Amino acid sequence: MPASVGLNVDMKSSPLTIGDVADHFGLPAHVLRHWESVGLLSPARVTGGRRRYTRDDLFRVASILRAKQAGLPLPDIRAFLAARDPAARKDVLRRNQRALHERIVALRSALDVVEAGLNCAHDDISTCPTYRAHLADLVEVGGSD
Rank of each mutant, 00 (worst) to 15 (best):
I64Y: 00
A79Y: 02
E102A: 15
G71M: 05
A79P: 06
P86E: 07
A106T: 05
I104L: 11
H101G: 15
A82L: 09
R66Q: 08
A88V: 12
S63I: 07
K68H: 05
L100M: 10
D76N: 09
V105P: 01
A99P: 05
L93A: 15
A87G: 08
L81E: 08
V92W: 04
L93Q: 07
K90D: 15
A83G: 14
R103S: 14
F80T: 02
L74S: 06
A99V: 08
K90Q: 15
A106Y: 04
R84I: 07
R78C: 06
R103N: 09
R108K: 10
E102L: 05
G117K: 03
R66Y: 07
R108M: 07
R66C: 08
D91T: 13
A110G: 09
A83N: 04
P86Q: 15
L93N: 09
R94W: 13
Q69L: 08
V105C: 12
A79S: 10
P75H: 10
V113Q: 08
R98E: 11
R108P: 07
R103F: 06
D76Y: 09
L100D: 04
I77M: 06
Q69C: 03
A67V: 07
S109W: 05
V105W: 04
S109K: 14
L111T: 06
F80Q: 03
A110M: 13
V113L: 15
L118D: 02
E102D: 12
L81D: 05
A82E: 13
R78S: 04
L93W: 03
Q69A: 05
R94H: 14
A67E: 01
L111Q: 14
I77H: 00
R98G: 11
A106G: 11
E115H: 01
A87W: 04
A99Q: 08
D76Q: 09
A116G: 06
D91A: 13
V113P: 06
A67H: 01
R84V: 15
K68Q: 09
Q69M: 06
A99T: 10
L72M: 09
V92I: 11
D85P: 00
R84Y: 05
I77L: 03
K90P: 08
A116F: 00
A116H: 04
A70W: 01
G71H: 06
D112I: 03
D112W: 05
R108Y: 03
I104W: 07
Q69N: 01
D76R: 09
D91F: 09
R108H: 11
F80M: 11
E102T: 08
L100F: 12
I77P: 00
V92F: 00
L65D: 00
I104H: 06
D91N: 15
P75D: 06
R89N: 08
R95S: 13
V92K: 04
E115A: 12
A79F: 08
G117I: 00
L74A: 04
H101Q: 12
V105S: 12
R84Q: 14
R95G: 10
R84L: 11
I104Q: 05
I77S: 02
R78M: 06
E115K: 03
S109D: 12
G117S: 02
G71F: 01
I104E: 02
A88T: 13
N96Y: 07
A82D: 08
D85W: 02
A82Y: 01
